[in-house]
Write a protein that binds this DNA or RNA. Structure first.
Length: 210
DNA sequence: ACATTAAGTGATT
DNA sequence: AATCACTTAATGT
């Protein structure tokens, strides 16, 4: 675990901080497709991704979902930062996209370190900023792109964070993420296949154009 | 062989 | 782009 921490965060944090992180955080390996945080749950830990990918979803009362963005190694969740600072509850749902390794830093530490370590403060601000930019991008996507463009972007993003051009999902699952119906996804995927952008098999999509 | 689940299609709004 | 109703194809038992 020290190695992984060193590898992904070593260049960011000074030794003292790395040691503190190692001492007080919990290492977890989470299998694919598991929810690690749900809306309304209190934030007790700040996750630092070491390996794998996570998708962040917004959800309404009926359980209807919409994907906001993906997180990959070296990332942390900005929503968690804002909520964690206020001791608030989560506004989003996080689901592992594949097998994910992460470190859980207790929320009170993350507040403490902001004043104690300059590098930590920088890290918090930086990830807050990049997440904000990602977030604006998703707003743009929702506002300006048509469904077919959104679908392609989704597939490409997914291939990127998962470092794998082949995507193992049913059309229905994709439809949930994009908050549309399975029929629409099936049709658009077919169109994309004809355009030569993807290849399809059952439960399996290969993104050719990355 | 049969049931279940995933994907494809035409028609309608 | 969503929904319905139905078909076809793949997969599990």
């Amino acid at each position: 675990m020290r190695d992984a921490l060193e590898q992904h965060y070593g260049y960011l944090f000074e030794d003292n901080l790395l040691q503190e992180i190692e001492a007080c955080s919990i290492y977890k390996k989470i299998p694919k497709g598991q929810a690690i945080m749900n809306i309304g749950e209190p934030i007790v830990y700040l996750p630092l991704l070491l390996e794998g990918a996570i998708k962040i979803l917004r959800e309404d009362e009926n359980g209807d979902e919409l994907i906001l963005y993906f997180l990959e190694k070296g990332d942390t969740c900005a929503m968690t930062i804002t909520c964690g600072m206020q001791n608030a509850t989560s506004e989003v749902r996080a689901v592992t996209e594949n097998e994910t390794e992460l470190l859980l830093v207790p929320a009170e530490k993350m507040q403490l370190w902001v004043t104690k370590y300059a590098s930590w403060q920088q890290f918090i601000f930086d990830s807050y900023h990049t997440r904000m930019m990602d977030f604006l991008e998703t707003v743009d996507t929702l506002a300006f792109l048509k469904m077919d463009e959104r679908l392609l972007k989704y597939l490409q993003d997914k291939a990127k964070v998962t470092h794998d051009a082949s995507i193992i999902n049913t059309h229905q699952e994709i439809a949930y993420d994009l908050h549309t119906s399975r029929v629409v996804i099936s049709r658009l995927l077919k169109k994309l296949e004809h355009q030569g952008v993807i290849k399809m098999q059952r439960n399996h999509i290969i993104v050719l154009d990355l």
